[in-house]
Design a protein around this nucleic acid. Structure first.
Lengths: 204, 204
DNA sequence: AGAAAAATATGAACATCGTTCACGAAACAA
DNA sequence: TTGTTTCGTGAACGATGTTCATATTTTTCT
């Protein structure tokens, strides 16, 4: 007997998400074409639009997967390696860079994807980003016991953005970015500077 | 008498650059259309391609202007306000954020523009980015006299990227970014942390 | 099981891009 | 002025995301 309607729909969605993922890995987000995806997924062009609202929402699905994977990597890394807050933050920064390098195009699409003006990222996907901050908070908290919860979350965003900025400019190949071979050692230097500075501010 | 060929060509190029700049300000880089530019510049569609190699190279011209303006703002700001390296770096970060906020879409196009795979940004435009680092180097040098020239330039890239990352995630409206109202105070906190950390590392 | 109904996949067609090119107009050289 | 060179013009082209009438498939009803 054939599959039920719900089963086939779910299978098609999965095939499309995986096809899109492969296409992004091979050609980058800018090289993602609806026709290439549907050809790879083995369905007609229009099938994409019965399974998803449009191409953007398919990209959101791919980004959701990437974000889950990234979150798992960071969570595990810091769980196994958190003797001091300094070391925890070093580990997080290093693993973040490792993931970004290893899954360069998927990671880039996480931050390069934009919806058309006026459209909004679905709430469920927005929430998925929280893990990027949650892995940092407890360790920054030890460095800055003087801060209240609100200040701490804000500074966590700032800290993440600082590290992220270094990785992003490098992997994007921007002129002002750090050259790739020196990325990880520079990240160590940056995190060292920030953690030492943070401790000293607290202590004074 | 009519204008010479060179004059008319130069005038058309300027009209196109200005039209493109206005279009970016009004609709963002993603909303930049060749037809809208040529309509605003008062020439035929094909005119764009006799004046410039293609649309990308026109964007490079706009970015070149923005970069010159940004460089001038930073250079002037730090010239008038450099009693200590800490204060110089604070001033630079603040002015950088101010410029990014005030010229949001032009500034974003500076970092969002990508050339098709295989193509390269012209060398003359790559060199224009140097100013972003040059304004930082002398002050970071005072904080880190232990570093040689090469280390220093590398750490300058890292420092710029860290500050840039915070501003970028915010102005892009990324979920993990710092909310705009808190951007400048967070930048102050970040630069403070980095400068204090840098001094302490040097002294130890 | 068979027929009617509902849902869904299909891919040709459409609108909108960036880019090209044959042509005619304008500027230069003689 | 006349011939030559250069450049602006806009119709046409190819590529792209999206839509929709149609065909197919699945479900429901008798």
């Amino acid at each position: 007997m054939g599959k039920s309607r719900a089963e086939k729909k779910a299978e098609l969605r999965n095939r499309l998400i995986e096809a899109a993922e492969i296409e992004i890995v091979e050609h980058g987000l800018a090289g993602l074409k609806a026709r290439a995806i549907t050809a790879r997924a083995g369905c007609a062009l229009g099938g994409l639009y019965t399974a998803f609202e449009d191409l953007d929402m398919l990209v959101v699905e791919v980004n959701s997967r990437t974000l889950k994977q990234l979150g798992a990597v960071l969570t595990e890394a810091v769980a196994q390696n958190a003797t001091t807050p300094e070391q925890a933050l070093q580990t997080l920064a290093t693993r973040y860079a490792d993931f970004a390098i290893e899954h360069q195009r998927l990671w880039l699409s996480l931050f390069e994807h934009r919806l058309a003006e006026g459209r909004e990222i679905p709430e469920w996907h927005k929430k998925e980003h929280a893990v990027l901050l949650e892995v940092i908070v407890p360790h920054l908290e030890k460095l800055r016991p003087d801060m209240d919860k609100e200040q701490l979350l804000l500074r966590t965003r700032t800290t993440f953005a600082a590290v992220h900025g270094v990785v992003y400019l490098t992997l994007q190949g921007r002129i002002v970015g750090v050259p790739l071979p020196q990325l990880k050692s520079e990240l160590v230097g940056l995190v060292e500077t920030m953690t030492i500075g943070a401790s000293l501010i607290t202590r004074k």
